[in-house]
């Protein structure tokens, strides 16, 4: 990992960011809006990949971390009138705190038990949102008014509902998280995470406190997912309980599996791929979910390591 020269991976990642930047000026409106959404959700997938791909912990409850960010940002804007940076920070803080508590409890288990425990906690979180419907809007959700979604920077103000501003904000968040992820997985800490995934007992016998290392990974993962949720609330203005449902715990897993677990760019590719397969097929037939299902099965059969995982295995061994 750390052995490959750092130039190639960094050039590739900066190239992807530059490409996404350039696309902003050429894409038609519809695809422009869709890509902004995909970039925000790819951040969710990157957060999920941190834990699933690199540490090997399969959570079925990550919707709660996304929603912690979504509601942390959305509710502080909606009820308390906080400004955009403060609300975003509130979303991050909610996600980090929730991840710390869930990590302390759920990391006592592994494997199937970990999946079930995380799913149960996420379900509790979902029910709490519905229970406090007078605050959260219940299953109707809340719409954050356009006036509240303005980022004031000194004398300038950026309207996050403007498509270009929204796209660039999504790209900025995506780029920061992508580069942070890349730095983590190439670091010494990243090497320890992979070691835990490969053989936790052995890692302990090399002097590593694997529980603490896993706990940090859960907090990093949860915070990244919360960043995605908070950005979603502020950029797209909708805060709803469906994002806390089990479906949104399974989606990031699918995106990551599709794109390639334990690859830094896989989450983006998986999210992009899934959105466009749904988008294209739903234009032809109302049975599009069937086609999506078949596409998923074919991919798993022929690219068991996901799109980027297979490319890395066959051709580009240096991909991080």
């Amino acid at each position: 990992m750390t052995e490959a020269s750092p130039a190639k991976p960094y050039a590739l990642h900066l190239g992807v960011i530059a490409l996404l930047f350039a696309l902003s000026f050429v894409l038609p409106d519809y695809h422009h809006g869709l890509l902004a959404r995909i970039m925000v959700l790819a951040v969710f997938a990157m957060g999920y990949n941190m834990l699933f791909g690199y540490v090997g912990l399969l959570s079925l409850g990550h919707a709660m971390f996304f929603s912690a960010g979504l509601y942390g940002a959305g509710l502080t804007v909606y009820h308390l009138g906080w400004n955009v940076p403060a609300a975003f920070a509130a979303g991050l803080a909610c996600g980090a705190l929730l991840a710390l508590v869930i990590g302390l409890l759920a990391l006592r288990t592994t494997g199937v038990a970990f999946m079930i425990v995380t799913m149960m906690f996420a379900q509790v979180f979902y029910l709490v949102i519905l229970y406090f419907a007078s605050w959260t809007g219940g299953d109707q959700g809340l719409v954050v008014q356009q006036a509240a979604r303005v980022l004031v920077l000194g004398s300038a103000s950026l309207d996050l509902t403007n498509p270009t501003v929204r796209y660039m904000s999504a790209l900025a968040l995506f780029s920061i998280v992508l580069l942070i992820t890349l730095a983590i997985v190439r670091s010494r800490y990243g090497r320890v995470l992979v070691a835990i995934r490969e053989n936790e007992e052995r890692t302990k016998m090399l002097g590593y406190d694997t529980f603490s290392n896993k706990l940090i990974a859960v907090v990093v993962s949860g915070t990244i997912c919360a960043a995605s949720g908070a950005a979603y609330a502020l950029l797209f203005g909708y805060v709803g309980s469906s994002f806390a449902s089990v479906q949104y715990s399974i989606l990031p897993l699918l995106w990551v599996l599709l794109g390639g677990a334990a690859t830094t760019l896989g989450p983006l590719i998986g999210t992009l791929f899934m959105y466009y397969v749904i988008d294209i097929t739903s234009g032809f037939t109302s049975a599009y979910l069937l086609i999506v299902g078949i596409a998923l099965i074919l991919l798993v059969l022929f690219f068991p390591k996901g799109i980027l995982g297979s490319i890395r295995q066959r051709w580009l061994g240096w991909l991080p």
């Binding site: 052995e3 090497r191 053989n199 052995r202």
Partner: peptide, 15 residues
């Protein structure tokens, strides 16, 4: 009980 999927280098880098 080495880390079979990691390089010999990474195996030793961990300790």
């Amino acid at each position: 009980s080495v880390f079979a999927n990691l390089s010999a280098y990474d195996n030793v880098a961990l300790p």
